[in-house]
Design a binder for these strands. Structure first.
Length: 714
DNA sequence: AGCACGCCGACT
DNA sequence: GTCGGCGTGCTC
């Protein structure tokens, strides 16, 4: 320390200067791991590193010195290991304690650091493969901001685990640019051929596409990808499951052969996945077809992002910060100036909103084409069923038997039954009014192992129920059990083979010969030549859910099954057990998913529901939720924000799987919702992130779950 | 999150 | 005068 300082400076500053001089005096020789400046990389001796720790207040970069030996390898995007921790500043002891080696990514190389202290050196370049490209980093940053999450969390989703062996092998040479594809069945849509031409000449159109029922959509998606490849750009298509991805993969292979694209799904092992991912990252392959995780695939010079069936819940990433594939691809389309194609048999409210705001153009078929492709849809409402004496006895309406019997002469018949785990809800046998709890008006359910029905909300058993509407006292299950229906149908048609497809055993396809195919929603096999008929028996299970999306989801699942049925012109018939006055039922009968979505969107706008307004949910212990929301309000919420709740969230869901946001067993959790007007989503996310940072700074460690645009708000 | 630093009371 | 409590703040 210097005696001069003591004389010329006031005491407070003095102390700081003393510390500073001690630091300067001791650092160069004492601190192991701190760079002494001898063999530093010339030119760009500093590496800015993203330290891979999912902690929010660490969501910033740290600068490290680059040893000369690592100069060539430590390029932006490579994985490194660095020392990180409080021990690094132990000046007095001169020893490095704690602060172990942790993983990170180099995000930039610089001539100097803006950090005043001494830089530690990069401990190790894990591999020279630049896996985190600038474009991928920008995307991850945008996703983290959008979801009030940390960059490190998003990067964990975007960059797969390393496989050293795979990295050592070179990827194949990229194939030559293919010729543009023929319009093919895209000609069935008035704007279809123009969309392909736009993609082929390098434009970036944005479209929300309502696909016609039938088997052509995988080839149409493949043609859009091929057209983009023909422009010399890359393309990415995300599908809800491996089965759908495999269909597009096959269609693309049929169109272009091997080598132009890879299939990125969870089905292939980690090594194969990393090999394919690297081929994409290196630019050896320009097109990707895959499931959710492929939304981050580092396709070079991206020309098109496509998403199929965005209403499928598997497009929502279950890991923090829970981004949705639709939003990630929207961000990519904007940031990478790529075309955007949102396709599906139905239209979600989000899709409708993209059309409504004129961000995207609708691609719809004419009514003539719809009529030519869609099956005949018939309904059986409650009134019909109540009048139908046979139905009450046999559990299935007689019209259903008729349709099945007739169709089985001509081909396979699909029977859509509720998924196991749906708790059957009860209704009055006489008037079909849903049976409600006398205490809290919750729905009555029959649970396994108990004879008396009990309330699905308060759990109270209802021993002596009677109907509030008609005074009836006999109950009837509104949902027909899958296993029993299959048994019954099988017995009724003993000469016809019965095949089942469900969660534990999904059939890919069946032949065109007569057969009964019993399937849960989403697991329907494709039938060669189409089904002769479909019976949709799960209307109540789907429509009765207390969910904002219940109508859309019901229509989506019905349409998914109905689209596998032959057109009405070839005798294809769909029978749906649901009240014909309900909006989704009407949309199915008229085959008008775009109209359904437009009406749902208008209703959401009127009620101030998402996606017209933006929402965030905060879930956790009452104290934690209250504290976080208070901090969000402190961080200043955007104009017009509304804080809703708190409401209790169910701890254990009997009959249902545990989901993110469920309280741990025995704990009482609450949820609050914060709603902001359109255009304030970014401000809301920023305020939430600031509040979370403040919360950790205040050492409030009990868990809270913050979700932007939660899917399941009642 | 760890972990060290530092500013308070109880002890030799 | 020294040891050690935990509250505060930093980690390149």
């Amino acid at each position: 320390m210097s005696s001069e300082d003591e004389r010329t400076n006031p005491p407070g500053e003095q102390l700081a200067l003393i510390r500073e001089s001690v630091r300067k005096a001791k650092e160069p020789k004492a601190r192991r791991g701190t760079w002494r400046g001898a063999d530093l990389a010339e030119g760009l001796p500093v590496a800015r590193v993203l330290v891979d720790k999912g902690v929010l207040h660490l969501d910033k970069y740290f600068d490290y010195a680059v040893p000369a030996a690592m100069d060539a390898d430590a390029q932006p995007g490579v994985r490194v290991r660095v020392r990180f921790g409080a021990g690094a500043h132990n000046v007095v002891s001169g020893r490095r304690e704690g602060g172990g080696l942790i993983d990170g990514f180099v995000v930039a190389r610089l001539t100097e650091s803006d950090y005043a202290g001494p830089l530690a050196a990069i401990a190790q370049v894990v591999s020279p493969e630049p896996v985190l490209s600038p474009a991928l980093l920008r995307l991850c940053r945008a996703v983290a901001d959008r979801y009030a999450g940390s960059l490190a969390d998003v990067i964990q989703l975007a960059v797969p685990a390393r496989h050293g062996r795979v990295e050592k092998k070179p990827s194949p040479e990229p194939p030559a640019t293919p010729a543009p594809p023929e319009p093919g069945t895209w000609s069935r849509y008035p704007t279809g051929p123009a969309l392909l031409r736009a993609l082929g000449r390098g434009d970036s159109p944005r479209a929300v596409w309502t696909a016609l029922p039938g088997p052509h959509w995988p080839a149409e998606l493949a043609a859009a990808i091929a057209a983009t490849l023909a422009s010399g750009r890359g393309a990415l298509a995300v599908l809800p499951d491996g089965r759908a991805a495999a269909r597009v993969d096959a269609a693309l292979t049929a169109l272009l052969g091997e080598g132009h694209h890879v299939l990125l799904t969870a089905d292939s092992g980690p090594e194969a996945r990393y090999r394919r991912w690297l081929a994409v990252s290196r630019g050896a392959v320009r097109a990707v077809v895959g499931t959710r995780a492929a939304m981050f695939a580092p396709v070079q010079d991206l020309g098109l992002v496509a998403l199929w069936d965005d209403g499928d819940s598997s497009h929502a990433e279950p890991h923090a910060p829970m981004p949705h594939a639709r939003d990630v691809l929207l961000l990519r389309a904007t940031e990478e100036r790529a075309a955007f194609l949102l396709g599906g048999l139905i239209r979600t409210v989000e899709g409708a909103q993209l059309v409504e705001t004129q961000w995207a153009l609708p691609v719809d078929a004419s009514r003539e084409e719809v009529r030519a492709a869609a099956p005949l849809v018939r309904t059986i409402g409650d009134g019909d069923q109540a009048r139908d004496g046979a139905a009450r006895a046999a559990r299935l309406p007689s019209l259903a038997w008729q349709v099945a019997r007739e169709a089985l002469l001509r081909g396979p018949v699909l029977v859509q039954v509720p998924r196991r785990g749906y708790v059957p809800r009860l209704a009055c046998e006489r008037c079909r009014e849903p049976a409600r709890c006398g205490q809290c008006a919750g729905p009555l359910e029959l649970t396994d192992g108990s004879s008396a029905p009990q309330c699905g909300w308060c759990g109270r058993p209802e021993a002596a129920w009677h109907c509030q509407e008609c005074g009836g006292f006999r109950l009837r299950a509104q949902v027909v059990g899958a296993r029993r229906t299959a048994d019954e149908l099988g017995r009724a048609f003993p000469k016809v083979p019965v095949r089942t497809s469900g969660r534990d055993g999904i059939l890919g396809a069946v032949t065109g010969t007569p057969a009964l195919v019993i399937s849960t929603p989403g697991a329907e096999p494709v039938a060669e030549g189409g089904y002769a008929a479909a019976l949709l028996l799960d209307g109540w299970a789907l429509l009765n859910r207390p969910d904002l999306r219940a109508g859309e989801e019901t229509l989506r699942r019905w349409t998914g099954a109905a689209a596998l049925v032959r057109p009405a012109t070839e005798g294809g018939t769909v029978l749906v057990l649901a009240e014909p006055t309900l909006r989704p039922v009407q949309a199915l009968v008229r085959w008008d998913p775009a109209g359904h979505a437009a009406r749902e969107l208008a209703e959401r706008a009127e009620l101030g529901f998402p996606p017209v307004s933006r929402m965030a949910s905060v879930t956790g212990s009452p104290a934690a939720v209250a504290a976080l929301v208070a901090l969000v309000e402190l961080a200043r919420l955007p104009e017009g924000a509304a804080v809703l709740g708190p409401v209790p969230v169910s701890g254990d869901r009997p009959g249902g799987p545990r989901r993110a946001g469920d309280a741990p067993a025995g704990e009482h959790w609450e949820r609050m919702l914060i709603r902001v007007p359109p255009g304030s989503g970014a401000a809301l996310a920023a305020a939430l992130k600031a509040a979370q940072v403040a919360r950790t700074a205040l050492k409030q460690t009990d868990q809270v779950l913050v979700r932007i645009d939660p899917l399941d708000i009642g």
